[in-house]
Design a protein around this nucleic acid. Structure first.
Lengths: 237, 237
DNA sequence: AGAAAACTGTGTCTCGCGGACACTGTTCGT
DNA sequence: ACGAACAGTGTCCGCGAGACACAGTTTTCT
């Protein structure tokens, strides 16, 4: 039964548009539904996405959505596929390092545009074509530099994890007036109050320095590390 | 009002045990409640944690929990603090690289023991002492190697992001019979069926090679990258 | 000592959620 | 023309978080 659900989702994300014949023409479409869901999530967060709200935005009943989508999980999967950008195509001229840099920046932009993607892409789920093409981008960029298949996949996990971490941090710090900023301020207060127990963090937070370099910083470290490995492999080849 | 909630949570996680005087003695404690929550989450996942279930496990009414905890968010914050291990203390003898390696492995173990920590630590939230001490661990290990405060914090984000990514992947692949494995199998099928659109991923997945190296792989790359930076800083000093 | 105040645990209620199901109305293939 | 397949609706259920009023218990103040 869980297998059925997985198959349903796979068909929704990967299958053909599903062309039935008889009966009234559907007034809605997966695209419109997904777009409405994205609109709600962008405005009020993923937690506020409910069948009611999405249907209401389209001037339909909640239950009518179930004619298109088996359940909420599938709706969110569609929203992810709809909201995530297509990865930059691997410009053949650029070397792997430039390609991956562009890749990471584009992915970070997707997360910045739709912060709820962070919440929607946690945990086990069926992956869609667009999401998979991001993975493909990394693996392609690293092709032919002496790395094994699993190693290239690991590199993708590494890069994705970093961009996600940065996006999470950016969301917490972003848009000064949001309740999230409240929490960041609370963290600062707490650290200052307990500076004796957390001297290193307290000192590091007091230390000025160009902020907003977090994406770049981690990215450069990762790419340096990959470059070192690639060089080592080239030497021993 | 959101600020109130944040302050409540800070007080719960950071404040003193809160010693009231009058009235009947509380039959419960934050520790027992958090432990019960952890038990539910370990057994059935974070999504199954409800006030009802947690209260039932303690043979109490749902509403009695609200005498201890302002709401569900705070309960989960307590659960996180209760479930996460203490970071390894910075053995003075070891160099930063060994310290961070141990750090990453220990953190990964926490995630392995309590997979729901991945879900519980997404998004904006108040951070507790134990969680903060993990951050302190990284910043301390990197102290005195020419890195600025923000850079050391960025390194922590980088490492945390990686361990999280690995934990997420491990959870998806783990315990063969779970529904999660179903999804992984579905991904394999999909990639094989669309090998024309995703040749690099298809090839990489077909490529054999020692699996379960993902944590090590990314960690080595990150540490190599950090080592390169540290060396560069030492040269120009 | 006694009364008032503060606190704990409970029962009841509301609202919003996801989803099942039966029903009416529409459209197309035969 | 007629019946099958399909679209959208209304009603219903169970579960979740949380508000609130209440009864019982313990401390503190007069």
């Amino acid at each position: 039964m869980m297998a059925e659900a997985a198959n349903d989702t796979v068909r929704l994300l990967w299958g053909p548009p599903a062309r039935p014949t008889r009966g009234p023409k559907p007034a809605l479409s997966l695209e419109r539904i997904a777009a409405a869901g994205v609109e709600v999530a962008d405005a009020e967060g993923l937690a506020s996405v409910s069948m009611q709200k999405v249907a209401g935005l389209l001037d339909f009943t909640k239950m009518s959505l179930y004619r298109y989508v088996p359940g909420k999980a599938e709706l969110i999967a569609l929203m992810v596929e709809s909201a995530v950008d297509a990865p930059p195509d691997a410009s053949e001229g650029a070397d792997w390092r430039d390609q991956l840099t562009a890749w990471a920046h584009h992915l970070a932009e997707s997360f910045a545009r739709h912060p709820w993607l962070l919440d929607a892409t946690v945990g086990a789920r069926v992956i869609g074509p667009k999401e998979l093409s991001w993975l493909e981008g990394v693996v392609t960029a690293l092709d032919g530099h002496g790395l094994t298949g699993p190693e290239r996949m690991d590199a993708a996990v590494l890069l994705t994890g970093h961009v996600r971490g940065i996006a999470a941090q950016a969301r917490a710090a972003g848009s000064a007036a949001t309740p999230e900023a409240e929490l960041l301020a609370a963290l600062g207060t707490v650290v200052r109050e307990h500076a004796d127990r957390f001297p290193a963090v307290a000192a590091a937070m007091a230390d000025p320095g160009g902020r907003d370099q977090a994406l770049e910083f981690g990215l450069e470290r990762i790419l340096d590390g990959l470059a070192a490995l690639i060089e080592r492999r080239a030497d021993t080849a």
